[in-house]
Design a protein around this nucleic acid. Sequence first.
DNA 1: ATGGTGGATGCTCCA
Length: 255
Amino acid sequence: MKIATWNVNSLRVRLPQVLQWLQAHKPDLLALQETKLEDTRFPEADFQAAGYHALYSGQKTYNGVAILARQQGSDRVTDIPGLDDPQRRVLGATFGRLRLINLYVPNGEAVDSPKYAYKLDWLDKLTGFLSDELARHEQLVVVGDFNIAPDERDVYDPLVWEGRVLFSQPEREAFKGLEALGLCDTFRLFDQPDGSFSWWDYRMRGFARNLGLRIDHVLASRALCDACTGCRVDKEPRGWERPSDHAPVVAQFEV
DNA sequence: ATGGTGGATGCTCCA
């Protein structure tokens, strides 16, 4: 089972790239974030033609999540229980025995912003939700744009980023709280090249200089961590013409 | 010098 996550920053713009990537890598599941499309505008027929079922929870202009899957999904969920949030950032579904939760965690803007408080509250509610999901599903995978770089290796310059949004201690503690539930960061189960990132700012030639952060993750329950045979960032699409600012992260499971 | 770049929207917000 190959599972991937990719913040596409507008599916309208990136649709040809997503279709090309699907053809090349043939994942069983691909989770997308920042589709920025209302559900009525979702290009379902294009994905059907490529051999994928689509689940989506979108909104105009901002946010929006989707799951492309080789098999049909069931038990779709689009909200964190107890969190009344019009922003479309959550999409979960069950595929066979495997439960997938796709997240677009709030960015937070800056540590002194109201959006940062919203982010921390969102992560707190998420933790409760995922605790329940873990109790229900032995095979749970939680993927997406977490907008958190978990440790020093995940930022190009830890000193520059210390205390800043995406790398602040409360955010990293929230990430550790997810790990404490029994979710592992599959990327760190394997040796990785230094300077492995999943997002590079469009500005200041960030990608060309590898000034990036690793904020897109594939977390898995214990049973699936034991069955994980690899996890890597596919930097290639970030180098394409008119790219998303994020690269796909791909994990392989022997299930 | 609070920049710089990209996406969607529509005289600006979000990342």
